[in-house]
Design a protein around this nucleic acid. Structure first.
Lengths: 107, 107
DNA sequence: TTGTGTTACGAGATACGTAACGATT
DNA sequence: AATCGTTACGTATCTCGTAACACAA
């Protein structure tokens, strides 16, 4: 899906591939595989232009927030700023038996 | 993440593996890989009990809606009911040049 | 001929299942 | 002894990058 969004942004497989640090054939295959999984076409390849299909545009609208949320999940404490939820502070304090892995990422 | 939710539901690797139609070692590796990617532990394995860590519980709260949304994206027209958005009706009608692939899934 | 997307193909990485292991009850 | 999670190991599958191809401007 990340690859799909990149291609949808660039509307150009070469530039999208460079942006993703992947070869153009690999990207082409990724998109085809996604289309096979979804059972509908995401792009119309005009062999000179790349355009979103209506279904591709719809998928794009839903894919962006999903990727954003997933990124938020995965790199939760990556930046230098720690963000905590009051409930987490609570749960963290209520079971101080043994911190499973205390990785001091922000010294 | 689907595997993680299964284990979190069952709190038992064997049952979760059966539910996912995968072997127990494979599931164990999947969870470990996810923990490695996230850089924090999701479960505490007591060699007799499995429990969520506070961070695992937090991850679970966020993972469920994300998976639900992803499933909605992937099997959009799977059931017998077709759901359309008014904007999609519009976009579909505004470019009737050529339907990229018209797969009549509901005869 | 140049630019762009797609196939072909061999190589490396990934993920699985079976089997063996360690720990706990 | 039984149960439950993990590690070892060989194998099948997947995915990549390079090279070759097809097609249009």
């Amino acid at each position: 899906m990340r690859s799909f969004v990149a291609v949808a942004d660039e509307l150009h497989f070469g530039r999208a591939a460079a942006r993703l640090h992947v070869s153009q054939p690999a990207l082409s295959r990724q998109i085809r595989r996604l289309e096979d999984d979804l059972d509908f076409a995401l792009f119309v390849r005009d062999s000179r232009h790349v355009a979103l299909t209506p279904q591709g545009a719809r998928f794009l609208r839903d894919a962006r927030p999903l990727l954003a949320q997933a990124a938020r999940l995965t790199h939760r404490d990556e930046p230098g700023i720690r963000i905590a939820h009051i409930f987490d502070l609570d749960t963290g304090a209520s079971s101080p038996t043994r911190s499973p892995n205390a990785i001091p990422r922000c010294p």
